[in-house]
Design a protein around this nucleic acid. Structure first.
Length: 199
DNA sequence: AAACGGATGGGCT
DNA sequence: GCCCATCCGTTTG
C-alpha cells in the first residue's frame, strides 16, 4: 500500500503544490467501495487573490483554508454541487488548490452509478463531477488527507489502469468560471490529457 | 459546435 | 437581494 503525500508536500507555495499535484492519485475508500483517479487539472487560489474565498479574511465557511495544510476544503457551489480543495502553504495563510479533473483509474462502476453515466470521460471531468464520482460531498471540512478515507498518493504508486494515458507536459491557462482576477495564469493541466474539464 | 438558460441554496454586502 | 471556483438538456447556426 503506497504512502500518502507527506505534510511537507502541502506546506509549500500554492502554485508549486498545484503543479506537483498533477499526476498524483486521489482515492476515496468508502464503505460502498474504492474509487480513485489521477489528478490531471488543478487551480491555485492565493491569499491576495480576489477570486479566493479566503482573500477577505476568515469566515465560518472558509475556516478550513486557514487551518493546517494537507486538509480538505469543501464547499457548496450553485446550490447543488460541491468543490474539493486541498489546503496548502503554511498554516494560517489561507490558500488552497482546487481539484478540477481526474482520469478515472479504479472503481469505475461505482463512479458510474454515482454519476448516472458510464462514459469514462464524463465521470470526473469537472470539479462538481469528481466530487460526485468519488462521493466526497459529505467529507467533513478540514479532514486530514494523510490519515482519513480520502488521501492523495504519489504519481505512479497506484496500479495503473489498463489503457491509462501517459503523463504529458504541464499547460498553464487562466482559471475557469471566475469573474475576479480572471486574467491570472493559475490553472494547470496535463497537456493532451482527454479527461480535463475543457480546453 | 456553440450558445443559452434553468436548477437550487448558502454566503456575504 | 445578489452572487456565485457548475452541470446538463435544449436550442440554434
Amino acid at each position: 500500500m503506497p504512502k500518502p503525500l507527506s505534510a511537507s508536500f502541502y506546506a509549500r507555495p500554492t502554485i508549486e503544490v498545484a503543479r506537483d499535484l498533477l499526476g498524483t492519485v486521489l482515492i476515496h475508500r468508502a464503505p460502498e467501495g474504492l474509487a480513485a483517479g489521477r489528478i490531471v487539472e488543478t487551480e491555485a487560489y492565493l491569499h491576495d487573490d480576489p477570486a479566493c474565498h479566503a482573500s477577505r479574511g476568515p469566515t465560518p465557511r472558509n475556516q478550513a483554508m486557514f487551518g493546517p495544510p494537507g486538509r480538505s476544503y469543501i464547499y457548496l457551489i450553485y446550490g447543488m454541487y460541491h468543490c474539493f480543495n486541498v489546503v496548502t502553504s503554511p498554516r494560517g495563510v489561507g490558500e488552497a488548490v482546487l481539484i478540477r479533473a481526474l482520469e478515472p483509474l479504479a472503481g469505475l462502476p461505482l463512479m458510474a452509478a454515482r454519476r448516472k453515466t458510464d462514459k469514462p470521460k464524463a465521470l470526473c471531468s469537472g470539479p462538481g463531477k469528481l466530487v460526485i464520482a468519488l462521493g466526497l460531498a459529505k467529507l467533513p471540512n478540514g479532514s486530514d488527507l494523510r490519515s482519513g478515507p480520502v488521501t492523495i498518493l504519489p504519481p505512479g504508486s497506484f496500479p495503473m489502469a489498463a489503457g491509462a494515458s501517459p503523463l504529458g507536459n504541464i499547460k498553464v491557462t487562466t482559471r475557469i468560471g471566475i469573474t475576479q482576477a480572471a486574467q491570472l495564469p493559475l490553472r494547470f493541466y496535463l497537456e493532451g490529457n482527454p479527461f480535463i474539464s475543457r480546453k
